[in-house]
Structures are given as structure tokens and as C-alpha cells.
Simulated assay, not measured.
Amino acid sequence: MAARIQIAVAVLVRDGLVLLVHRHPSRRWYPNAWSFSAGGHVDPGESPHQAVSRECLEELGIQVHDPLPIPMTVTDPTLDVRAFLLTHWDGEPVNAAPEEHDDLRWFRPTDLADLNLAHPESLPTLLSAIQKGAH
């Protein structure tokens, strides 16, 4: 069995809202679905913590502080996803990767269940972590 692909994902929370990005319809994996903020492959020699910081800078144009590891359930057996709750950063998140995302928006956590999410199975554990970490 091949090694699972390591992915690091950022869950940005501000003023009770969660930032999601809409994956471009031309994306190979999970096209036309909403996903939690910045995220991507963990490069060789890079920790998930370093990867999430790099991805936030590349995809959102922000410098993050104190990413907090949180549980994330993903049923795709090819992925090893590490999620990080982010409540402090420098800069205003923008779509710095339009080839990957065609939209980004702030949502109330109660609205997330109505969206076409890339990993809907992750929603209960992420909402619980968001609720605990945002206080």
C-alpha cells in the first residue's frame, strides 16, 4: 500500500465566522466544493505546522501565528490530513491562488452543513474544535 499523502489544512476563525475557499471547478481533486481555507501537500522535510504556515502565505497572503492542531476526520484512505485552527494572523486574507480557488467567504458555523464541502465527514469534529478554540 502506498504511503498516504500528507496534507495540512488551515481553519481560520474570526469574530465567530469561519473562512472557506471554493475549489476551482477545473481542480482535479474535489472540484467545485468548499474547503477550509488554505491547505496543501506537506513538502519533503517540512512539518505539517510549517506547511500550513507556508500555504496560508501562498494562498491567502497572510502570516499566521500559533497554529493550533485540531482533529479532522477524513474518510479518503489516501490522505493523512492535519488541521490547524488559526485565530491570529497578520494581513487580510485574499484569494492569492485564483488558479486553485474561485471564491473565498466568511461563513457562520451553522451555515456550513448546507454547503457542498470537500470533506463533509470532517464537519462535526471541526465544529467542535472551532467552538472550543474560538473562546
Rank of each mutant, 00 (worst) to 15 (best):
P77A: 13
S26E: 04
S35E: 07
N32V: 01
M72I: 15
T87V: 06
V64G: 05
D76Q: 12
R82M: 00
G45A: 00
H88T: 15
E46K: 00
D43Y: 08
E58T: 08
L68W: 06
Y30G: 07
H49Y: 12
V42C: 00
E55K: 14
T73R: 14
H88E: 11
E55A: 15
H22T: 13
P71G: 14
V21D: 13
S35H: 06
D66N: 11
R82I: 00
N32I: 07
G45D: 07
G40Q: 02
R23D: 10
V21S: 12
D43G: 09
A83F: 07
R23V: 09
P67G: 02
W29G: 09
M72R: 11
R27S: 14
D80Y: 08
H24M: 08
A38E: 00
S35G: 11
H24S: 12
V74R: 05
N32M: 01
P44T: 02
F84H: 03
T87H: 03
E58C: 14
G39F: 02
V81K: 05
Y30H: 12
L57W: 15
A83T: 03
R82Y: 00
L68T: 04
P69E: 05
C56D: 05
P25E: 05
S26N: 03
V42K: 03
E58L: 13
H88Y: 06
V42T: 03
T75Y: 11
A51Y: 08
L86H: 01
N32W: 10
A33P: 02
V74T: 14
C56R: 07
H24C: 05
G40W: 07
R54I: 01
Q63T: 13
P48N: 01
G61W: 10
D66A: 08
W89F: 06
V81N: 06
N32A: 15
L60M: 01
P25T: 14
A83M: 05
N32D: 15
D66G: 13
F36G: 00
L86K: 02
H22R: 15
V21W: 00
L86P: 01
L60R: 00
S37A: 15
V21E: 07
I70H: 02
T87F: 03
P25Q: 01
W34P: 13
A38C: 05
S26K: 13
G39I: 06
S47H: 05
A51D: 02
W29A: 10
I62Y: 02
S53T: 15
H22V: 09
W29P: 07
G40I: 14
P71A: 08
D90P: 09
C56K: 12
W89K: 10
I62D: 00
I62R: 06
L85I: 06
A51K: 01
F36P: 03
T73F: 10
